[in-house]
């Protein structure tokens, strides 16, 4: 619980372009992902569930900064292709 709070504070602490989180330990796309949507309707995400308590990847992006054309995944990886709408971007991991 404390870890989740820490992640929320980190994500919300800056105006983010892309955030990538590893080892989420989340099997389902639960409410936590919603909580992370830094108070904006501009947020999109791509989610790869964990196997039990192991692994799990989450990529989130601000649709005001990035227009994503496709998103897919393979073992241990989430990929996407898109266009950057602004001149600069903050990318956190």
């Amino acid at each position: 619980m404390a870890k989740k709070k820490e992640v929320v504070n980190l994500v919300r602490g800056r105006k983010q372009g892309i955030v990538s989180i590893k080892e989420t330990k989340l099997e389902r796309n639960e409410d936590f992902v919603g909580t992370l949507l830094w108070g904006s309707s501009h947020l999109n995400f791509s989610f790869k569930p964990s196997r039990g308590a192991a692994g799990g990847i989450l990529t989130m992006w601000d649709s005001g900064t990035i227009e994503v054309d496709f998103s897919s995944s393979f073992e241990n990886v989430i990929v996407f292709g898109g266009r950057l709408k602004k001149d600069d971007m903050l990318f956190s991991g």
Binding site: I18, S20, K22, E23, G55, G56, I57, T59, E67, N76, V77, I78, V79, F80, G81, G82, R83, L84, K85, G93
Partner: peptide, 18 residues
């Protein structure tokens, strides 16, 4: 607009998986 690709990776610990 700049087009780009992004891969978000979480590598396994074992050498074979990697």
């Amino acid at each position: 607009m700049i087009c780009f690709f992004l891969a978000n990776v979480y590598a396994p610990c074992d050498v074979r998986g990697k």
